[in-house]
Nucleic acid binder design. Structure first.
Length: 701
RNA sequence: UGAGAUAUAGCUUAAUUGGUAGAGCAUCGCUCUCAUAAGGCGAAAAGUUUAGGUUCGAUUCCUAAUAUCUCAACCA
């Protein structure tokens, strides 16, 4: 039965290109889903676009000395091209700087405003006079009122872990100019999420207990149980969508408010272009709305955006939000700043025409229920052992034999044996099996079922041995080859959502029509009108790869990836990471001049760590006992992310001994150990030259 | 710090409402020769992170602990 679907994929933020993590977590699964639904005859609107507002873009622009518009233009183009290159079939890829989006978002805001869905509040915020702007919490540092740490951020003190407001900080400083900010009144609008709490409980906690993924459901439940509070929907900023009401000069919509509305504006833009009506895709109860996102976006898509849609009143709500977890790369988190990533444009340069290999490797190893690791070795294995050896090889065997025995003409089968019936029965079940996995958002399982179909083909050939039978029973050989060809044909159809480029190639080999031919004149030599839905019946009726149909020359669908290609990728990761670190390493300017007297105030001693243990429930802290020569004292040090307690024992260190004692997590720390940092961000002890015999307690001057 | 998710063969993972833990890769045998030195068959390999509890019976439910990740805190 045909149904209307609106599918959205998280809007990529335009402050960089996209990498395999984005692809694996969001865009490939979303594309598989969208393609599958189209193939099964549904009405699909698959929407995405660039998310181009928000503070980080203005920061990046400032850093590079260009305008925010320059930044978003650059990355919008790169990202859009990557999606096209990888066969992500958005019906529209828009951008939030588009006029239609500004209009849509403003209109949305105004509707809520007029309905009285917002709360207005005037608060005092820190303001940087020189930069002429209000400061986001992140851009204020100062002294923590709890523990006295002088480097606390406006949102949290990294030292004691307390959550803060920027205005709580003692001696606040602007991270932009270094000036002391002033307090200034500002008015903002808030969406009272608490007002929608009952509805959210009913809709999600009761209504979607069974069909939403546990991580999504759990996250939402925890938020709701915690009690929802009003969220600001506007900001003081000059980059974004102006707040469309009186007295809101210099204010824009908060980026998370405008971004999800981007799905709606993208749909409008598309509908206009295609001459359709956009409204059914967002307002008809029979439309199924599905958001594909990463796990970091759960709250916005499950609580905030639905609350907005509900408050507006005329919109439908998502049927499911199948958020994925994250993908790691070779054991480490993907990181743009450390350049620890596989960027899509780079991949295509090194593996031209091999989009499907990456799509497949990412699907087969997708982080559906937990974070997963992408390794090049696994990538190679997926290609060589599965795509080449099982899928590609099966197709090649069938096509080569058909050309060899019958000059490419599909032979006429005779009476079927038991094994033929069984094989055909198994074959006919596959569309259903794969559908079931896809509809439950289990894409890695679905991709493995596809591979199992190719295995079925290989086994059938191995069992029936047409290359032997041809010597004694030509009729039987024809039957065998006919059945093998049905399997090859089914692979061409069923692989399309996962391996669209391969599917097209395979259809060309088998002389089947491809989606690209749609609309034009199609010669009778092509097989036509096969769909995911009618495949089963056409096989049953001998109306699929029919006897007498002529197939093309064989060509290889996949090629082996050699060890050296994989090594090259590993080396590349390592070098680009290093290069990036070097480039990012900017020496801090020299601090204010001090007198010799200032220096002599510091009492630095050589010491040895004699005991160490991990501070319970703290990520960074080790509790150390240090022999300073004058005494043995306890020092709490934030080095646990770089060292284990064991490896630190016996280390020679430099200790600042006359630092005023301070309690960290209830343990009195009497002094400080001098550290510096390696390029990888790992801490390094500043200690006496290991070759010299230096006694503990010696002063350093 | 508070909350959520995850933990199953060497690796990646599956297991309807509790009922003999099922695959793939890698490994090791056997085997075919149409095919990209590919295919097929078979074997070995886990008793489910740890400690308790409920139950006739627990991977599954409960409690606690540990580890990893995420959110709260503008990177899929």
């Amino acid at each position: 039965m045909s149904k209307r679907y609106t599918i959205t994929a998280a809007l990529p933020y335009t402050n960089g290109p996209i990498h395999i993590g984005h692809l694996a977590g969001v865009y490939v699964p979303a594309d598989i889903y969208a393609r599958y639904l189209r193939l099964t005859g549904n009405d699909v609107a698959f929407m995405c676009g660039s998310d181009e507002h928000g503070v980080p873009i203005t920061i990046k622009a400032k850093k590079e000395g260009v305008t925010p518009q320059d930044i978003v233009d650059k990355y919008h183009a790169i990202i859009k091209k990557s999606f096209e290159d990888f066969g992500i079939t958005f019906d529209n890829y828009s951008r939030t700087s588009a006029k239609i989006h500004h209009d849509t978002a403003q209109e949305f805001f105004k509707t809520l405003y007029n309905k009285g869905e917002f709360i207005e509040e005037v608060t005092e915020q820190l303001y940087d006079e020189e930069a002429n702007q209000f400061l986001a919490d992140r851009f204020v540092t100062g002294t923590c009122p709890k523990c006295g740490n002088e480097e606390a951020y406006g949102d949290q003190c990294e030292n004691c872990g307390t959550s803060l407001n920027a205005t709580d900080l003692i001696i606040p400083k602007s991270a932009i100019t270094g000036n002391t900010p002033t307090l200034k009144q500002t008015k903002h609008w808030f969406l009272p999420l608490d007002k929608h709490e009952d509805f959210l409980k009913e809709w999600i906690l009761k209504g979607h207990k069974k069909d939403w993924k546990p991580n999504v459901y759990g996250q939402v439940k925890s938020w709701i149980d915690d009690g929802l509070r009003p969220r600001a929907v506007t900001r003081d900023l000059d980059w974004g969508i102006p707040v469309p009401v009186e007295g809101a000069d210099g204010k824009v919509l908060y980026v998370w408010f405008d971004a999800p509305i981007g799905y709606i504006s993208a749909t409008k833009e598309w509908a206009e272009r295609e001459g359709k009506d956009w409204e059914p895709y967002w307002k008809d109860e029979n439309t199924k709305l599905v958001h594909f996102i990463g796990k970091d976006n759960i709250v916005f898509h499950c609580i905030i955006f639905p609350s907005m849609l509900k408050a507006e009143g005329s919109y439908i709500l998502p049927d499911n939000v199948p958020a994925n977890e994250f993908l790691n790369l070779e054991g480490n988190k993907l990181s743009t700043s450390k350049n620890w990533a596989v960027w899509l444009p780079d991949y295509l340069e090194d593996f031209p025409g091999q989009q499907d290999v990456l799509r497949y490797a990412l699907t087969a190893n997708a982080p559906e229920t937990k974070d997963n690791d992408f390794t090049w070795k696994d990538f190679q294995a997926r290609n060589n052992n599965e795509l080449v050896a099982i899928f590609g090889n099966f197709i090649n065997r069938v096509v080569v034999l058909t050309r060899k025995y019958y000059e490419g003409v599909v032979p006429e089968p005779s009476k079927l044996r038991d094994i033929d019936e069984k094989t055909l029965a198994a074959l006919r079940a596959y569309p259903e099996v794969i559908s079931s996995s896809i509809e439950r958002y289990r894409f890695r399982e679905a991709s493995q079922e596809l591979m199992n179909l190719a295995r079925l083909g290989n086994k059938y050939l191995a069992d029936e041995e047409p290359w032997k039978v041809i010597k004694e029973d030509e009729a039987r050989t024809k039957t065998i080859m006919y059945i093998a060809l049905q399997i090859a044909g089914a692979l061409a159809i069923l692989s399309e959502p996962f391996l669209p480029f391969t599917s097209k190639k395979l259809k060309e080999i088998l002389a089947m029509e491809t989606p690209e031919m749609a609309g034009g004149y199609i010669s009778d030599r092509f097989i036509k009108g096969v769909s995911w839905k009618n495949l089963k019946d056409r096989i049953s009726l001998d109306n699929f790869i029919k006897p007498g149909h002529c197939i093309e020359e064989p060509q290889l669908l996949f090629t082996k990836i050699e060890d050296k290609d994989i090594q090259a990728q590993l080396d590349k990761l390592e070098t680009s990471k290093k290069a990036n670190e070097a480039a990012n390493k900017v020496a801090e300017p020299q601090k204010e001049e001090i007198t010799f007297d200032d220096f002599t105030k510091l009492d630095l001693r050589v010491g040895t760590i004699i005991e160490a243990e991990k501070m319970p429930k703290a990520k960074k802290l080790l509790v150390l006992k240090v022999d300073t020569g004058i005494d043995t004292r306890t020092i709490v040090s934030g080095i646990a992310e770089s060292f284990t307690a064991e490896e630190v024992i016996g280390k020679r260190v430099t200790v600042l001994v006359n630092l005023a004692p301070r309690k960290l997590r209830g343990v009195e720390s009497e002094g400080m150990i001098l550290m510096t940092e390696s390029p990888e961000g790992k801490l390094v002890f500043v200690n006496p030259d290991a070759n010299q015999d230096v006694a503990n307690g010696l002063q350093i001057s």
